[in-house]
Amino acid sequence: MNITALRTTTFTAVVMTSALALTGCTGEPDREDDDVISIATQRQPHLYAPYAYEDFAPEGTTIEVVPMDTSTDQMTALLSGDVDFALMGVPTVITGVSEGSDITLIASGADGGSGLIGDAEIEGVPDLEGRTVGYVPGSSQEMAFRLLAEEAGLDPDTDINMVNLGYADMHEALSSGDIDAFAGAEVGVSLSLLDGAEPVEDIYTTPLGPVNIGLATTGTLAEENPELVNELLGIHEEATAHLEANPSEWIEAVQGQFSFENEVLEQAVENIWLRSDIDEEYRGNIDELALQMQELEIISEAPVADDVVTEME
């Protein structure tokens, strides 16, 4: 099966501009057409899977993919009822749960997709003292970097100049010399590596592990319409497994959808591990991530994995 070819004839990602502009929303998904499932995602290779869902959906089921810029935007769309599901950053799901929002994680999506990248002369985290490092506040990359800095005896808030940057801006900022390193995501990581930058240190060696992306919905939908949620879970599992087993097809499909260069994607997929299961190790990573978010005062109280994850039958 060639996903790119199939998509050309059978599937167009739908940007639900009109849906996002609705007023008087009840906070529950619009289920007027039970054969249409909407899912929010982002324009990154490790969040590509929803674009392949249509190829694995039952006959008569339509998948509407809603591309968004941030996980915060995705959570807002979920909670307002504008989308049914979201493939998004796990830290944002944890934040929502800690605030009492009706959001829950039902599957993993992708591990990895991260990197701590710097100028070639930087030989390790200790060399970052007094230097400028780009990061996204509240991200798993920020928390992993802070743990690595502390292990190296550095206080990120006083010994390092931490600069808030969007993921898409990090490669250019490093290339131009505006920053010395960044804790960021693909494809910026691969762009910088191909441009001569080097990994400062393995970002996955902290207790957070490589946890990054998960599939979320609302607790209300999971409770009131488990048939729909289980249907989407099955689609997600099949699509994710197929892409993971066929990296060349995954690269071709991502390139066709997002127009990234092939060389960049070949580098990026080596740093991404697609998955859909939530095992005990993954739960442990969620627990550690939540504790670090509390430590950094991103959230006031850390939820445990059992509060973040809903196991479907």
Rank of each mutant, 00 (worst) to 15 (best):
T4L: 10
T10C: 13
V14E: 12
V14R: 10
M16R: 15
L22W: 04
G27V: 11
D33W: 11
V36Q: 07
R43P: 08
Q44I: 08
Y48I: 15
Y48V: 12
P50I: 05
Y51I: 05
E54Q: 15
T72E: 14
D73E: 15
T76H: 15
L78D: 03
L79M: 11
D82V: 13
V97W: 01
G109W: 05
A110K: 06
A110R: 03
A110Y: 00
G113C: 08
S114P: 11
S114Q: 14
G115A: 13
E121M: 08
E121S: 14
T132N: 00
Y135L: 01
V136A: 07
L148H: 04
L148F: 00
E151P: 07
E151V: 04
D155N: 15
M162D: 02
M162H: 01
N164T: 11
E172Q: 12
A173M: 04
A173E: 02
L174P: 00
G177V: 02
A181I: 03
A185S: 15
E186K: 03
L193S: 03
D195Q: 06
G196E: 02
Y204M: 08
G209D: 07
G209Q: 09
N212Y: 02
A216S: 09
T218D: 05
E224C: 08
E224K: 13
E227C: 08
L228W: 03
L228F: 12
N230I: 10
H236P: 09
H236S: 15
H236Q: 13
E237M: 11
W250I: 00
E252L: 11
A253G: 14
V254L: 12
Q255N: 12
Q255M: 12
Q255T: 14
G256R: 06
S259L: 14
N262Y: 05
V264Q: 01
Q267T: 10
I272Q: 00
D277Q: 10
E280I: 00
R283K: 15
I286T: 02
I286R: 00
D287Y: 01
E288D: 10
A290P: 00
L291R: 06
I299W: 00
E301H: 09
